[in-house]
């Protein structure tokens, strides 16, 4: 989200200048070793619970007790995973989770890019004021409207359907409008001029010229959105009653209260829920670990 850095420095040719001739570790060996030690220790602390989760998901109930903190994979009970999938309608929940993740992503990206483009490129009277309102609503937690929104969806007859989890996404989200606006602001204004010369309407210009160029922003926003929609818990907890519309986090929470002592099963289910995020991570790894960056567009 380097897009947020708009402190006035124009993107110059400085990126071509190399910082130093020799790699860092050759210049200062002792410090390098200290750094490695810190990195290794930190990594251990960070990754240990993660590995423990995986190791535990493969143990027997008795094995969990005797293994304690160890992550040594002494047992491989893959049937914990088959149990996790078969002991509740896993695929149904996974499908619901996917629906309430992917469709809202499309909706949010489209509506936010649209508004972001308008704020960046269609500077008209009051657009500044409206944008200030957008920023202000960013600070307003959705939880404040939790009760009245429930009433709204109740009036619409949408309780116990997936729609309350899907529809609001099509009406933009201030945070992502802000991100898209920043991104579009950075694009050269000449693009618009060229498009106008070609006789493009504003919508066509947005759809055919700007949106394709905003690919890095779209990808980055989609990744962020995936993580948050996939893990959404409050929404389903409020709106979903019946089994057939449950999402995976909701099912896991229910599971925790019903089968709370079956640790391997809980961990296996947790791993399964985390899996899609892991997959996305490894697909988009370069984009993420190098910093989710919007600057690739130039």
């Amino acid at each position: 989200m380097a897009v947020l850095v708009e402190t006035g420095h124009a993107a110059g040719p400085s990126t071509t200048v190399r910082r130093a001739d020799r790699p860092y570790w050759r210049r200062n060996l002792p410090l390098t070793l200290v750094l490695y030690a810190v990195l290794a220790l930190g990594s251990l602390a960070f990754v240990y619970p993660f590995l423990w989760m995986i190791a535990t998901s493969l143990r027997s109930l008795a094995g969990v007790g005797s293994a304690g903190a160890s992550i040594w994979p002494s047992e491989f009970l893959w049937e914990n995973y088959t149990r996790a999938i078969t002991s509740f309608p896993f695929w149904r929940y996974a499908l619901n989770s996917l629906i309430t993740t992917l469709i809202p992503i499309v909706g949010t990206v489209f509506s936010c890019a649209l508004a972001g483009f308008a704020f960046a490129r269609l500077r008209v009277r009051f657009s500044g004021v409206v944008f200030a309102v957008v920023l202000a609503t960013m600070l307003l937690p959705g939880e404040v409207t939790m009760v009245p929104q429930f009433m709204l969806f109740n009036n619409l007859g949408m309780i116990d359907t997936l729609y309350p989890l899907i529809l609001p996404a099509f009406f933009g989200s201030p945070f992502y409008i802000f991100l898209f606006r920043q991104f579009f602001s950075r694009m050269p204004a000449e693009l618009a001029d060229a498009a106008v010369v070609d006789g493009c309407g504003w919508f066509k210009m947005f759809l055919l010229v700007y949106l394709p160029l905003a690919r890095p922003a779209v990808v980055a926003v989609s990744i962020l959105l995936f993580m948050s929609y996939w893990n959404n818990f409050l929404g389903p907890a409020i709106y979903i009653n019946s089994d057939q519309w449950k999402t995976l986090p909701l099912a896991l929470a229910g599971f925790q209260s019903v089968n709370g002592t079956d640790t391997p099963l809980l961990m296996a289910t947790s791993v399964l829920i985390t899996l899609p995020c892991l997959v996305i991570f490894f697909v988009a790894q370069k984009q993420i670990t190098n910093g989710i960056t919007f600057t690739g567009g130039r």
Binding site: F233, M267, S270, C277, L278, F281
Partner: peptide
């Protein structure tokens, strides 16, 4: 990668863990 991985385990799964 290692330091980023845990942030993928979020929401209910993280608390259960």
């Amino acid at each position: 990668t290692i330091w980023y991985l845990p942030s993928l385990v979020s929401g209910v799964a993280q608390i259960v863990l």
